[in-house]
Design a protein around this nucleic acid. Structure first.
Length: 595
RNA sequence: GGGGUGGUAGUUAAGUCGGUUAUAACGCCGGCCUGUCACGCCGGAGGCCGCGGGUUCGAGUCCCGUCCACCCCGCCA
């Protein structure tokens, strides 16, 4: 085949999104894919598409007979090069595209490659099953709406690198293949051929390495890094995902937060041109849980929860009284008049089904009438004094609806938190274009594990608050952590903490977690060893970059901002990974498969 | 581990109480067309009704199993 004149001598002069009225009269060369064709016989119109946009190309026998003849063969997704003269479209403009005032009068055409009919339309807003899109991801990624997402994603990388480099951070890499450490997310394991029966673990995060960088005197580190977690997938969770990971020496919480705020402001500006104001709002974990039922409240709408345990405990309504007697709480959500009236009896009864997955038996509700009287299941049994106390506590007035959940504290909060979000959506209370950032602070250092033991709620290297240190042994549940999460519109987008840098405090933390010195040494010995040699005070944070990208792009799913994502079962529909492997490979790895 | 939704042409969907030849739109193929831009007009092709079994004279439809995708709970220090 002869060398392409288009590639060797003509060369591309513009992209398909560049040409404007000012270019009229110029001889240009475009390359791209046939987005659509409209063949009128004597005139063939082609919408030529590349990453940058769409330009209309016109073929006619009077422009170039050979090109016109060849254009008759063009079909969707043919990859072509076109040379032609930019001409004005006069009054016949297409306002839908930026290049709509001009078009290309084609004088030469080369078909680089032909295309079979694609399995779905290459256009925005398609309704095609995601499985089919994922199987042909290369074609899916041709669609402008996905390309836009990856353009934003690329800007995120650049912005992060610029800002952090300016702030004296070093971009450093850490191993993916490391040592398995128990606790936390399940690791993917990689067999070691050279070391029979031994396995690497893929890093679930670079946590320990970045602390070692601090010991090493790197001062400020960041990395845009892949992490791997073998957990069940969700709309916003993939088995491999990307973090923006940072760590700083000689800092306290506010220092980390200040850097992060600077990073976010720059990021929003660079990626989507939005202006964000810092500093962000702050809220303690306790306040978040009690007012919103979650540790990542969506503040784009109000609708706070109320704790009415005290008033409800002796209300006379058995559901409330029993829950409180069993050590639980009663949580209420007051939906003010205009919204409350919109909720039908069916809507309200339906909340019980909505809430069931969270482990509660039901959701009670009342409508508040004139004079504060209640109408609904709890109304009759509830004493007047309790009712008045609850109304007062919630500020309930006629026309309101009050929802109740009575259960163990965690269950009640989680359930009500979910109901609050659902109500926000259903009643259309959410301010759609708002960016509500929030720091959530003062997390508990420990929480109860399945066996009633204490487990680290962040990770075991998180520093306790100094004033809570005295309770570390006597009342671990009371100890707060120097941890902070950054929340955006109800999504946790980053989490971090100030770390322990004193061996003696670390030893106490391990003991509180039920780890003996020997066990601690076996699991984290290399870190403890490093900490013998003058570790600096340090702290850091890690962002879920994919989630950030999802929010910045306004995408519904992480899969729309990850180029080649996995399905919910962790498979790749395009490559069909994971696959079974041959006995020979297994033998090399000294692995026997259990059938 | 548990709960839910879905799977019919290339794509998206319809398909009644189990009953004749499984429909439509878009896409695709052929023809016509010099101003379209969701081009238009005429004609045409295209089906393992996810897969396996069962019930029945007869199954896209009913039953059992299974696979796949998605959503949720648990899980994600």
């Amino acid at each position: 085949m002869a060398a392409s004149e288009f590639l060797t001598t003509l060369k591309r002069t513009h992209t398909c999104g560049q040409l404007r009225a000012g270019d009229v009269g110029n001889d240009v060369v475009l390359m791209g894919w046939v987005d659509s064709r409209r063949d009128h016989g004597g005139r063939v119109f082609i919408d030529l598409r590349d990453r940058d946009g769409i330009t209309q190309v016109v073929f006619g026998p009077d422009y170039d007979a050979a090109a016109h003849a060849l254009a008759g063969e063009l079909r969707g997704e043919f990859c072509i090069g076109v040379r032609g003269k930019v001409i004005s479209r006069g009054t016949n403009i297409n306002p839908k595209i930026p290049t709509g005032t001009i078009e290309l009068e084609a004088t030469s055409l080369e078909i680089f490659s032909r295309s079979e009919t694609p399995p779905f339309q290459i256009e925005d807003g398609i309704d095609t099953a995601e499985a089919i899109r994922l199987k042909h991801r290369d074609l899916d990624l041709r669609r402008p709406e996905l390309q836009k997402n990856f353009i934003v994603r690329s800007k995120i990388y650049q912005s992060v690198r610029n800002t952090l480099t300016e702030e004296r951070f070093l971009e450093l890499e850490t191993p993916f293949m490391g040592k398995y450490t128990p606790g936390g997310a399940r690791n993917f394991l990689v067999p070691s051929r050279l070391n029979p029966h031994h396995f690497y673990a893929l890093a679930e995060s670079p946590q320990l390495y970045k602390q070692l960088f601090m010991v090493a005197g790197m001062d400020r580190y960041f990395q845009i890094v892949r992490c791997f977690r073998d957990e069940d997938l969700r709309q916003d969770r993939q088995p491999e995902f990307t973090q923006i990971d940072l760590e700083l020496s000689f800092v306290v919480e506010e220092d980390v937060q200040r850097v992060v705020e600077k990073l976010i402001v720059a990021l929003w500006k660079d990626a989507i041109g939005a202006d964000i104001t810092a500093p962000f709002q702050r809220m303690t974990y306790d306040e978040a849980m009690s007012k919103y039922g979650v540790d990542k409240p969506d503040l784009r709408f109000d609708l706070p929860l109320g704790d009415i345990t005290e008033a409800a405990g002796t209300s006379g309504f058995k559901v409330f009284d029993d829950a409180v007697a069993a050590g639980g709480i009663v949580k209420a959500l007051r939906i003010p008049a205009p919204g409350g009236e919109k909720l039908s009896r069916k809507d309200l009864d339906g909340l019980t089904d909505f809430a069931k997955p969270y482990g509660v038996r039901g959701v009670a509700y009342v409508r508040v009438n004139e004079g504060g009287a209640w109408q609904g299941a709890p109304a009759k049994a509830t004493s007047e004094s309790a009712r008045t106390a609850i109304n007062t506590r919630l500020g309930a007035v006629a026309g309101d609806v009050i929802l109740f959940v009575a259960d163990k504290a965690k269950t009640a909060n989680t359930t009500m938190g979910a109901i609050r979000l659902e109500m926000g959506r259903r009643l259309d209370l959410i301010q759609k274009d708002a960016w509500r950032f929030l720091w959530v602070t003062d997390f508990p250092l420990f929480e109860r594990g399945d066996a009633g033991n204490w487990v680290a709620s962040h990770h075991p290297f998180t520093s306790p608050k100094l004033e809570d240190l005295p309770h570390l042994e006597s009342d671990p549940g009371r100890v707060r952590a120097r941890a902070y999460d950054l929340v955006l519109n109800g999504n946790e987008i980053a989490g971090g903490s100030i770390r322990i840098h004193q061996a003696e405090v670390q030893a106490r933390a391990f003991r509180a977690l039920g780890l003996s010195d020997d066990e601690a040494r076996a699991k984290f010995g290399f870190l403890l060893e490093a900490f013998k040699y003058g570790p600096p005070p340090h702290g850091g944070i890690a962002f879920g970059l994919d989630r950030l990208a999802m929010l910045l792009c306004g995408a519904d799913s992480l899969r729309d901002v990850i180029a080649f994502p996995k399905t919910q079962k962790g498979t790749d529909l395009m490559t069909e990974a994971p696959v079974e492997i041959q006995q020979k490979q297994l033998d090399e790895l000294h692995i026997t498969i259990k059938k």
